[in-house]
């Protein structure tokens, strides 16, 4: 069981990193909108990769 004396301090360091990541996420505004991202994931911008129908050829973007 002596290994615990090493493993627990390591777990504390990992915990410290986890807290730091959390604080960083809060600072960078990831918790500002708690509703939008859940919906946003459903509407990805990958559709232009799918071939378009010919009548939208005049599309200029």
């Amino acid at each position: 069981m002596d290994i615990l004396f090493l493993l627990i301090p390591i777990s504390l360091i990992i915990m410290g990193i986890a807290v730091w990541v959390f604080l960083w996420a809060i600072r960078s505004g990831q918790f500002d909108d708690l509703e939008g991202p859940a919906h946003r994931i459903l509407m990805d911008d990958d559709d232009p990769l799918i071939p378009r129908r010919p009548q939208l050829k005049d599309d200029d973007d």
């Binding site: 500002d32 909108d33 708690l34 509703e35 939008g36 919906h39 946003r40 459903l42 911008d45 973007d61």
Partner: peptide
Amino acid sequence: CAACVWLNERHVKALPGVLDFSVNYS
């Protein structure tokens, strides 16, 4: 609805000269 957010972000971000545009849905 959430699709409005997507529409706005996509439309405005595509404008030349717009560096960033984000909508808060809440």
